[in-house]
């Protein structure tokens, strides 16, 4: 790879290589505040390479590669190299990480306790985490939450937050423009703009937090709170975990413990302000 960068996000050391300078330059800007230890061996490698050598010059498109390859990964135009890098990083962690149980969930922490939010794309879990992270919460991550299979603590994976579509305006108005990446319009996932987490969240990214509340948000529709039974939470989280099966009994033990020890609710909300209010209400009720 002609251009490369090493970035530590939570416990994962990435090496990202690219045939082009632009995606690496964009990553250098987004991840300037993260540890960049060039001597530490990489645990996940992402390569953005040209499909054919000559394609680097003619109508370039970025292909995602790395330790694991999804055969039908979308070839993305070079202008979306940053998105390709993000997708590659997600892919390597989702498929390769074994040290923790990985939940496809956002998380924020307060007073050493974690609020974990799991949901499909579009549920609002990312936006809620980003907005809470601008308040009195520490942003732990907008995409993945890592659970220590031995102790049960949650660990952060605070990559640059991937704001999509309406969430861009909802968050952009509240933060310093220097913390926003370039607007990438019309990607396969819609409009995307990255938000650099607050410096205190990056500085605290190795600090564990005890899971205290599990929420399954659903954006749209009326305001509702629905307590969720242990069995349903277990099923949903096995579906939300990318490495539950690979972890074997350690994953089973970690998940049963998390489900038993953590109160869980489904919430639906018509707008972000209501969503935040529901989160604060449930947090106060759960921890009193």
């Amino acid at each position: 790879m002609r251009h490369s960068i090493r970035i530590a996000v939570g416990p994962v050391q990435f090496r990202i290589g690219s045939d082009w300078a632009a995606p690496i330059a964009a990553l250098e800007r987004l991840y300037a505040g993260y540890p960049q230890d060039d001597a530490r061996p990489a645990e996940a490698t992402v390569r953005l390479f040209a499909a054919r050598p000559w394609r680097r010059w003619v109508r370039p498109s970025v292909h995602i590669g790395g330790d694991f390859v999804v055969p039908d990964a979308l070839p993305l135009p070079l202008s979306m190299g940053l998105l390709a890098a993000e997708m590659g990083m997600n892919l390597q962690v989702a498929l390769g990480w074994r040290r923790h149980m990985l939940l496809h969930a956002s998380a924020v922490a307060r007073d050493g306790r974690a609020l974990i939010m799991s949901g499909e794309s579009g549920s609002g879990k990312s936006t809620l985490a980003a907005l809470l992270g601008e308040d009195e919460w520490r942003l732990m991550g907008d995409e993945f939450t890592l659970i220590d299979p031995v102790g049960g603590d949650a660990f952060a994976f605070p990559r640059a937050v991937s704001l999509k579509n309406e969430a861009i305006a909802a968050v952009a108005g509240r933060v310093d423009a220097a913390r926003l990446g370039p607007l990438m319009a019309g990607t396969p996932k819609g409009d995307i703009r990255h938000l650099i987490p607050r410096a205190d969240a990056i500085a605290a990214m190795h600090e564990p937090a005890r899971p205290a509340l599990l929420l399954f948000p659903r954006f749209g529709g009326g305001t509702a709170i629905e307590p969720m039974g242990e069995g349903e939470v277990f099923v949903r989280l096995t579906e939300a975990s990318t490495n539950y099966v690979a972890l074997g009994e350690a994953g089973f033990a970690a998940l049963t413990r998390l489900v038993r020890e953590t109160p869980a609710f489904g919430i639906s909300y018509p707008d972000s302000a209501t969503g935040i209010a529901l989160v604060e209400q449930l947090w106060a009720e759960t921890l009193k």
Binding site: G229, E230, G231, V233, F234, V235, F252, T256, V259, R260
Partner: peptide
């Protein structure tokens, strides 16, 4: 065998 409310895992 781990009972989880109405389900058993």
């Amino acid at each position: 065998v781990e009972p989880l409310g109405e389900l058993t895992a």
